[in-house]
Amino acid sequence: MNRLVGAFMLLGLPAGAQTTIQGDNRVISLGNAPVAESKTRAAASSAAQAVMRGLDKLAGASEDIILTAGETTQFGPLTISMQDCRYPKGNPNGDAFVSLSIIDTKTGKSAFDGWMIASSPALNAMDHPRYDVWAIRCKLDDRTPSVVAGESSPLPIMRPEELGGN
């Protein structure tokens, strides 16, 4: 039996279901069911780096993490590996989505493996009792400022007492 037909039977969908693409629209036909159309998304570009934010929920401390594609870093007991950071083509400040693998080194289990979407962090969130990690944006290169605190400013963040205030 054809795998595709078997999958449709398993899902309870008619074997005659088909998807066709017409221009910028995707048309999905399921037997005699009404036709569903959806706009396809614009093409995406890959970025060299991703800006992530990690939160230790117990200590209440957050840390900004900049990862390069193929790089692995530690955040607490978590080992974070980034495979890719994509953004809408022609709009590097647009909605980023980052491919990550996160392993809890204490348990040896995977805490997350998949794509995180910057604009919808709860859509595919990491599930860990103490730590949160989420995507902020893609960063094209070292010269491109990111939105993390202090990076877009020519001066480092200073405490009021360092500025001469009380």
Rank of each mutant, 00 (worst) to 15 (best):
T107F: 05
L163A: 15
L55K: 08
E37R: 15
M82G: 02
C138Y: 09
R137S: 13
D141R: 02
D64Y: 13
S99Q: 13
V35N: 14
P154M: 02
E63R: 14
G70H: 06
T107G: 10
L100K: 04
A135H: 11
S110W: 01
E71R: 02
L30I: 15
P121H: 13
K57E: 14
Q83W: 01
A149S: 09
L67V: 10
D24K: 15
N93I: 04
A59L: 15
M82P: 06
N91M: 04
R3A: 09
E161P: 00
S152K: 09
G31D: 12
G23P: 08
G6A: 15
L13S: 07
A36N: 06
Y131T: 11
G16L: 05
T19P: 00
C85I: 03
R137I: 01
D113Y: 01
A7Q: 09
K106H: 08
S29C: 03
D141E: 07
Q49N: 09
N93L: 10
M52S: 04
E161D: 09
G108D: 13
T40I: 15
L155S: 12
I103E: 02
C138F: 09
G165T: 03
D142I: 05
G23A: 13
G23M: 06
C138M: 04
G114L: 02
M52A: 03
K139F: 01
A69T: 12
I103L: 03
S120H: 08
T72L: 03
N93P: 00
D56C: 07
A149L: 10
V133H: 05
T40C: 09
R130C: 00
T107D: 13
C138D: 07
A33Y: 12
A61N: 12
K139L: 06
G114W: 03
I103G: 00
S153K: 07
T19M: 11
D95L: 01
Y87W: 13
A122R: 11
L123P: 00
D104C: 11
G6F: 04
L55C: 05
M126Y: 00
K106F: 11
I80R: 07
H128C: 07
Q49D: 00
T73I: 10
G94K: 09
T79W: 01
Y131D: 10
R41H: 11
S120L: 08
P88M: 03
V133E: 07
L11R: 04
A50R: 05
G31T: 00
D95A: 07
A7S: 11
T72A: 11
G54E: 10
S152H: 12
T19A: 09
A44G: 02
N25A: 11
T19W: 04
D132W: 13
P14G: 15
R143M: 12
R86Y: 05
I65A: 08
R143I: 04
K106Y: 09
P129V: 07
S62Y: 08
P129L: 06
L67N: 08
A135N: 12
E37H: 11
M116T: 02
D84G: 00
R137K: 02
E161G: 00
A149K: 08
L155Q: 14
S81F: 10
A7C: 08
V98C: 08
V133C: 05
G76R: 05
A69F: 03
K39Y: 15
L11T: 05
I21R: 14
V98M: 04
F112G: 10
C85V: 01
T73A: 13
P92N: 08
P14T: 14
T72D: 05
A96E: 03
R130A: 02
E71H: 01
